[in-house]
Design a protein around this nucleic acid. Sequence first.
RNA 1: GGCGGUGUAGCCAAGUGGUAAGGCCGAGGUCUGCAAAACCUCUAUUCGGCGGUUCGAAUCCGCCCGCCGCCUCCA
Length: 465
Amino acid sequence: MLRLYNTLSKRLEPFTPLQADQVSMYACGPTVHDYAHIGNFRTFMFVDLLRRYLKFKGYKIRHVMNITDIDDKTIRKSQEQGIPLKEYTELYTRYFLEDLTTLGAELPEHIVPATENIPEMIDLIKRLEANGHTYVSEGSVYYRIASFAEYGKLSGAKLAGNVAGARVDVDEYDKEDARDFVLWKAAKEGEPFWETPYGRGRPGWHLECSAMAMKYLGESFDIHCGGVDLIFPHHENEIAQSEGATGRQFVRFWLHCEHLLVEGQKMSKSLGNYYTLRDLLKLGFSASAIRLLLLSVPYRKQLNFTLETLRGMETRVKKLSDFRRRLKGAPTVDSADTELLLAIAEARKAFEDALDEDLNTSAALAAVADFETSINRALAQGSLSLECKERALRLLSEFDAVFGVLALQSDETESLDEEILRLIEERTAAKAAKNYARADEIRRYLFERGIILEDTKTGVRWRRV
RNA sequence: GGCGGUGUAGCCAAGUGGUAAGGCCGAGGUCUGCAAAACCUCUAUUCGGCGGUUCGAAUCCGCCCGCCGCCUCCA
């Protein structure tokens, strides 16, 4: 039974979807003003793991992600660079989706830019207006949070006014209450705008998620996730907008991913610890190691990202990949091995139990490692039965259906060129003739060309460095 | 000022009352002509500090110290 921590109830709750076999989920996507950084990708990898695990549990998924392509940053940066807004945001949307794909994320069923759903947003404002939740000030439409009794139920934010010490948004003098938020922003000179019954303007940030989530998933749906920083005010405001319009529960499970730190510090450009995916790839790290690192710590814990750990993950991925290769090519014996069959079954149970408990990926990966050792032991003894081999391969692919790490590694069915094949044969012959000097010379030569030879009981094997 | 999280070996970390998972690094060994890979063994008497509760605490309580976050755009 899968249990998930619901920010709304602040408790672990057994997860069941509204529809027996299908999960509806919405995940807040990026604001496409720049390349996303690895902190962003931690959250997106968490969402990917969630959807993959829900599939593992047998559910079909209907998953929506928004693309915020109209806001202060996208407008400002596109203007600074003299590029039309749409062109600018389409470029960074493309980069973002490329990065997601590089990291092996399954793409959501619906990826929707905010600007393609303006009519839905206007309709939502109309419903809120009809229910008395809005007011107009200086050409903008605001949400009056005092009109929504349950405001604060997600974040625990109190309705009381500003507390001494809190930073105050000096720009918002035109609101009735400092915490009211804008639904529709009156157009400023030189900014993109839409013609609406509320005048020329553009949508407030929070509006798009409510409008688009309900458009694609209905007024009530199962899961909404994002980073912890979105709990307040973004998700709190989404609840106010959605439930204020429909009178129904908007989201059943709110899931929030903790932030990642780099070398124990908050990632920031001034500290020089700010990495995009592309920065790390340029440093020579693989997408699979980055993905594994981002998934290696349970999503509700802060993850301390270090390059040392990433190097370790690189080794880990190589070992796993090599393990798969050896397992696939392993010869089998006739005898049954009930003990190993039991170990395989236990590994699968440990894996599922770990993920059932609010997606404890650390514990799940420990189960994978234990499984790997059990099989390697049998492999080393040459005592793997056909049944064990088949079950082990099946389990390995189940593990990877969730973690998606090996899927990013080539299965290396590539072939070598003839000269190298000839050299390998020559070395085998030299070795048989006990001409070790020549054999080692060839091995060194191939190593310098990135090919490692391994002598095994069943003959020589090669692999890339 | 309000609210919240967290501190476990060189590094990343699981573990929320029953006597410290796992990974990476490191040391030794087995196998090998030598390697590589794999396997085996070792690597925190101890969980930020000090008190307390308990038969028993990394796990509960109190105080102190450190780090991170939300209250403003933010994954």
